[in-house]
Amino acid sequence: MTARDQHKWSPVLRPIVRQMMSKLYLTAGALLIASAAIIATAAEIPLDQRTSAYPGMSRETRAMQDDDTANPATLWVLDGETLWGTKAGAVNKACADCHAEGSMKGVAARYPALRGGKVFDLEQRINLCHTGQQKAAAPFPFESRELLALTAFIGRQSRGEPIAIDETKLEPAIEMGRKIFFERQGQLSLACAQCHNDNWDRQLAGSPVGQAHPTGYPIYRLEWQSLGSLQRRLRNCMVGMRAEPYALGSPEFVALEAFLMYRARKMKIETPAVRP
């Protein structure tokens, strides 16, 4: 209420009006808090109702994922296998020279992970080894054939393993990711949770919305006609929300990855999955 409004009332009425208005503000405030609480607690999907997008896909797409020789992502897995055994960097060592065969089993199910006080996702961890141990001149760029191939090759070895990131150590990252997940953003003022928690069983422009569990990354997306990382997928969603996407490899994206992996805890890895 502005001073200009107030001066219209007689001095007798002024206190009464003021009281009425303050009551109105209180009610409005309470309503705001209540609606904020609804958004903040927008129910997480009960653990036993969580599902991968896989069962909802068409028969053909499922068949593509089931058969490794029909799954185009296998092309990247094979490239990754080659890279794994290829000497690289200033020290001229291959991944296989340090890491024993089979030592990568279950690794993808535990990322993002903490290392030296910093949270790394699997792609960043590969690059840490590439520049740190192999002493390569430059890290693999995000979404490069090499990085996707190595991630797919490592991820493939965790197929069927339950997701189990270190919830205690990663708590700050998970909380940051949770905040982003529930935060309205972009020109459409949408939060991730509004689609993927509240309306996951409905359709958006003819396609199922889905619960957004990162069980199959990197995925071969038919729409992309290529393999892509979880961050590429997140970028995709943010552009759709008309929000400005975070940079690939930014702490925000890694935090969101950490939260999504926590949200999908104990679900089984399908890497490399095929998605429409």
């Binding site: 490239d79 080659t82 191939a149």
Partner: peptide, 8 residues
């Protein structure tokens, strides 16, 4: 990197 995959 154009390794084909063949299933016979």
């Amino acid at each position: 990197m154009a390794r084909p995959l063949i299933n016979v």
